[in-house]
Every structure is written in structure tokens, then in C-alpha cells.
């Protein structure tokens, strides 16, 4: 387990990436007691095709708030994939929604049909971001599951607890093989 992670969650506006970033950040900062800085796209960019939320999770004080290259990249849309794939550090992890994105295979590339899972297995397409959170959690261990679940449950609208919990644990339970 490294003690410094730069993470980019990317996709298009409306996929809940910024919410994901806030939940992950809150979980790591408040419940895992890490040093965390989270930033995100603003304005027209946030509503457009390649929107992002970024996190730096570290065991010591974070200086630069905005990652330039990343250890973990999540992409939920084609424009975001195309734009951000060059920024992945050697040995980095790329998680791709293969139901939406055409991608290049490689070491550390994890394609999963995240949106299809959300639609078929959870029964609600908008939970794709929560499924993705579960995937990041189990694949990277950058944030603990308990912390993530606590932060998630504090943020979602009342009445949606069960479906969100289901989506998170579903994401966590997936088995991965990187795509070489």
C-alpha cells in the first residue's frame, strides 16, 4: 500500500462524479484520517463532455492540490478517456466503463461494464457512480469500505439507503482481472 495516491474520476457531467469525489474524500479524510485534498471541474466544463473530480490521498500533508499525473483513473465516458488516459503514471490503475468507452487493453487496465451493471444488477442506472466507488475501494484499497459506506449514507437522499448500499457492495464484490 502506497502512502500517496493521486486519483482522477472522470466522465461527463451528470454522471455523479463530483459527488463520488466528495464521498471518497470525506471517507478518507474524516473516517480513515488521511490527508486529503479534493478538487473538481467547474462551470461549462463540469456540464460538458469531459468532467472530472480529483483527489489526493496521503499519509502526510498534501501540498499540490491538483494532480497532473495520476495513480488511479476512472473513466465513464469516451471524451474523458481520450483526454485523460495520457496522464496515467507508469504502473497506474485505469478503471473503464466498458459499456460506454472504447479502450486500449494494457497492464493495469480494468474494463467493467459499470453502467450495465447498475442498470441490470442494481436496477437503477444512476447508481453507476456508486458501483464504481465499490470497485475502486476493493481494487485499490485507497479508502476503507466502512468509511466509504458511512460517507455515502450521509450524503444520499433519505429513502435511497438500501439501493445505494447494494450498489456499493456489488461494486466491491466484483472480481477483476486486468486486461493485458
Amino acid at each position: 500500500m502506497k502512502n500517496f495516491y493521486e486519483i482522477r474520476l472522470s466522465g461527463s457531467g451528470g454522471q455523479g462524479l463530483i459527488t463520488m469525489g466528495m464521498i471518497m474524500g470525506e471517507a478518507a479524510a474524516l473516517f480513515d484520517h488521511k490527508y486529503v485534498v479534493q478538487t473538481q471541474s467547474y462551470g461549462p466544463e463540469a456540464r460538458g463532455g469531459a468532467c472530472k473530480a480529483e483527489l489526493i490521498i496521503s499519509n502526510s500533508r498534501v501540498n499540490n492540490p491538483k494532480p497532473i499525473t495520476v495513480d488511479i483513473l476512472l473513466t465513464l465516458s469516451q471524451p474523458a478517456y481520450d483526454k485523460y488516459i495520457p496522464d496515467v503514471k507508469p504502473g497506474g490503475i485505469v478503471i473503464i466503463d466498458s459499456s460506454l468507452v472504447k479502450y486500449k487493453k494494457g497492464k493495469g487496465v480494468y474494463p467493467l461494464p459499470i453502467t450495465t451493471f447498475a442498470e441490470k444488477d442494481i436496477g437503477l442506472k444512476v447508481t453507476a457512480n456508486v458501483v464504481a466507488l465499490g470497485i475502486i475501494c476493493s481494487l485499490t484499497k485507497v479508502v476503507s469500505y466502512n468509511a466509504l459506506e458511512r460517507a455515502l449514507l450521509n450524503r444520499i437522499p433519505p429513502g435511497t439507503e438500501n439501493i445505494n448500499k447494494k450498489a456499493l457492495s456489488f461494486g466491491k464484490s466484483l472480481k477483476f482481472k486486468d486486461n493485458i
Partner: peptide, 9 residues
């Protein structure tokens, strides 16, 4: 903008 928009504990 940086300090205004970044989130920290």
C-alpha cells in the same frame, strides 16, 4: 480559486 474550490478536512 484553488483554495476556494478545494476540499479538505
Amino acid at each position: 480559486e484553488t483554495v476556494a474550490h478545494m476540499r479538505e478536512k
